[in-house]
Amino acid sequence: MQRMIQFDQVTKRYPGGNEALKNLSFTIDTGEMAFLAGHSGAGKSTLLKLVAGIERASSGSVIVSGQNLSKLRSSQIPYVRQHIGMVFQDHKLLFDRSVFDNVMLPLDIIGFDRRDAARRVRAALDKVGLLAKEKSMPIRLSGGEQQRLCIARAVVHRPSLLLADEPSANLDRAYALDIMELFKSFHQVGVTVVISAHDETLMEDYGRRIIRLKEGQFAA
């Protein structure tokens, strides 16, 4: 099995001296679906940001699909991100443009032909059940719908790695399960999926690997 993500003795210290991750080493295989568990402040978001190159490791190396992010120049990081889909904890939607245009953005960035892109955008919106709302503005969507919009934007360019930071937070259980099923379907077509959550009960049903964090280290 090839490795999608490899952490070697990774420490992340934020300015101010706060150590969010302490000497972590682990790997996630290509095509794997893994969960990241831990209370608030355990370091889940930090770990995902290191994978996406949003933050840089203070020491150790982060290798994503063969690329050592610690050694890349910052001008090369965007091209790594183009192969990653990320569902942000705070969504990061753009409220000045329609649902359709929000999902179009990643395709614009990689320079997709506009007509093919429109087809892709609709396919992604259809997948998350938002096709009927393509012309709506994100502000008119419910919390769950915004979450789905964020997922559509994360998968529209068909990334090989999908990172989701607490995608089921603030959703009722039935809705959260729907979202988990959605991620499972991406995993089934070969996408490597890493999902974080502070609530483990959702993960246990799936029988997947759970990486448990506590204060920046593996929990027993």
């Binding site: 996406a52 949003i54 001008s75 965007p78 091209y79 790594v80 991100r81 183009q82 990653i84 990320m86 942000f88 990061k92 939607l93 753009l94 000045d96 953005l105 990643p106 614009d108 960035i109 990689i110 934007r153």
Partner: peptide, 16 residues
């Protein structure tokens, strides 16, 4: 600013 931030987060290089 917001738009630029989000674009950077999802892989937009400076040239874009």
């Amino acid at each position: 600013r917001d738009e630029i931030e989000v674009a950077k987060l999802i892989g937009a290089p400076d040239s874009f």
